[in-house]
């Protein structure tokens, strides 16, 4: 039992580190893209159909890459950014790049749910596009945005389990190396349980924040 606990500590911390960092970076990359996609849509507040089309295409292409392939493809980029292409920190690069287009689409669809009447009212009051984005679109869409970020984190927990393939460590890696390759079924089960608990915790927190935001309305 004790040995199991010791085995779990480092991979759990690695997983948390990967999820936290890749959530952060995928939001930094994906959030502005999502806003751009919403705003430049033909029905958006600053329609730019050709730009919207181009960005939309890039996002779709990135989203359709299988993660395992993407990890290998971004090796050179990881080397430039973090100095190495293997290890936990290196795996944050492909994780962020895989999640960013997903984040972009989720943010886009959350922002598009905002009542057009509200946007029109803001426009009638002389708001600039910037003010509409910051004062209307984002605050009004906040509950959906929180739900979207929750989904993103949960997806990243799943993806991060694959990081073992490039020596990224984490719980998924532990399950494969001990549980599968060394026939330690107990380790496999316990790692999966920890992942499950993580997912459950994230979902619970996300739902709770979302609910609290909605109650206030």
């Amino acid at each position: 039992m004790n040995e199991l606990l010791v085995l779990l500590i480092a991979p759990t911390l690695q997983t948390l580190y990967m999820i936290f960092a890749s959530t952060l970076f995928s939001l930094i990359l994906g959030f502005p893209l999502g806003v751009l996609l919403c705003v430049t849509d033909s029905g958006g507040i600053a329609p730019r159909p050709s730009l919207n089309n181009a960005v939309g295409r890039v996002v779709n292409v990135l989203r359709s890459f299988p993660f395992i392939i993407l990890m290998i493809l971004v090796f050179p980029l990881s080397r430039i950014i973090v100095g190495t292409s293997i290890g936990t920190t290196a795996s944050i690069v492909p994780l962020s790049i895989a999640a960013a287009p997903f984040v972009a689409r989720i943010i886009e669809s959350a922002l598009k749910e905002v009542d057009p009447g509200c946007i029109q009212a803001a426009r009638a009051m002389g708001s600039s596009n910037r003010q509409i984005i910051l004062k209307v679109l984002i605050p009004e869409a906040l509950p959906s945005l929180v739900a979207g970020v929750t989904t993103t984190i949960i997806n990243l927990i799943g993806y991060s389990a694959m990081a073992g393939a490039i020596g990224g460590g984490g719980l998924g890696d532990l399950a494969v190396r001990y549980g599968y390759q060394r026939f330690r079924t107990d380790v496999m089960i316990v790692s999966v349980i920890v992942i499950l608990v993580l997912v459950e915790l994230v979902q619970l927190t996300g739902s709770r924040i979302g609910k609290r935001l909605l109650v206030k309305r």
């Binding site: 009542d115 009447g117 509200c118 029109q120 009212a121 426009r123 009638a124 009051m125 002389g126 708001s127 600039s128 209307v136 605050p139 009004e140 906040l142 935001l213 309305r217």
Partner: peptide, 22 residues
């Protein structure tokens, strides 16, 4: 200048169009 002008023209709507988050 249009935005500046709009700030001096109020408008009300059938569906009120209030900001639910505020």
């Amino acid at each position: 200048s249009l935005n500046g002008h709009r700030q001096k023209v109020g408008m009300i709507f059938q569906q009120f169009n209030l900001f639910d988050s505020r």
